[in-house]
């Protein structure tokens, strides 16, 4: 206690920033129709006390995810199916040439990112898709956050819907997992906050008007965010979070974000794949 009271200037500032955000939050968020109170609807979205972001959304947002027809993310699944059979590149192949139906890839999404012996680092779904394109199809890789890459990633996630997230963090993946974990707990940016401040210490409380989730979005992305009005990747969300604490964001697809992705997906272990999830 006494140590905390005699905090240096920097420590005081940090604590105060968090406190002022939470204070404002408490007032602004009062009365929001959070689903957190609904025990009956937790169901598959809570595993061993770990809660999916679904449980931090309002019932209106949940209902958009619940109905495949009204979930706009499904438009990207359909776009993904069209691209699946599209022949591109010098090899004259499409995804279907090697993989048959997209459903043959059920079970792939929950185990990525994983260690890739070729590059001796992690590889995530988006990067795996692009490797297929460049190596098997001899086609150009898709740009990060481009419509086709989002659509294909969404389709790959969709065919694993309901399966539990299950990334490997031991063996050669371990050092990358540790780096991702370090990122999660490291303070950064002008607000000097780490991922963990919002999504670990204060999960379930309001930051201004928003209810903070536990940051277990491993099975959700690409997700349709109401704010984006479209599908977006987990790395886009990371970028947003980093900007929010006024830190310089990393590039989507960077080693830093892929490592962080492994850590976040491990935090989501056991939770179901929800792609395309719907979030605020």
């Amino acid at each position: 206690m006494s140590r905390k009271v005699s905090m240096n200037g920097r420590g005081r500032k940090r604590a105060a920033v968090v406190a002022s955000l939470l204070l404002a939050a408490g007032l602004a968020g009062y009365g929001a129709s959070s689903a957190m109170a609904c025990d009956a609807c937790k169901g598959k979205y809570e595993v061993d006390g770990r809660k999916s972001g679904y449980l931090f959304a309002t019932k209106e947002t949940q209902s958009i995810q619940d109905d495949d027809f009204i979930n706009p993310g499904m438009l990207w699944v359909e776009k993904g199916r069209e691209l699946w059979t599209k022949v591109e590149g010098e090899a004259g192949k499409s995804c279907a040439s090697c993989h048959g139906e997209p459903e043959s890839l059920r079970g792939v999404y929950p185990v990525y990112p994983k260690y890739d012996p070729k590059t001796e680092k992690l590889i995530n779904i988006e990067q795996r898709i692009n490797r297929c394109r460049t190596e098997q199809m001899k086609a150009k890789p898709w740009k990060w956050e481009s419509e086709p890459l989002l659509a294909m990633t969404t389709l790959i996630g969709y065919v694993s819907r309901g399966l539990p997230m299950n990334v490997k963090i031991d063996g050669p993946a371990k050092p990358f997992f540790e780096k991702g974990k370090e990122f999660y707990f490291k303070r950064r940016g002008q607000l000097d906050m780490a991922c963990k401040h919002c999504h670990y210490d204060f999960a379930g409380r309001y930051i201004r008007a928003d209810l903070l989730s536990e940051g277990r979005g491993g099975g959700a992305f690409p997700a349709y965010r109401l704010k984006w009005q479209k599908i977006g990747s987990l790395h886009r969300r990371f970028k947003g979070c980093n900007k929010q604490i006024r830190a310089e964001p990393y590039k989507p697809g960077s080693d830093e974000y892929v490592n962080l992705e492994l850590f976040v997906k491990w935090r989501s272990r056991g939770l179901p794949v929800e792609v395309p999830a719907v979030r605020r």
Partner: peptide, 22 residues
């Protein structure tokens, strides 16, 4: 714990917060 955090809010911090909202 939370009480203490509230105690140490200084004027500058509030200005940072207010600036962001504005």
């Amino acid at each position: 714990m939370s009480m203490m955090k509230i105690e140490v809010i200084d004027r500058r911090t509030f200005l940072i917060g207010a600036g962001a909202s504005a």
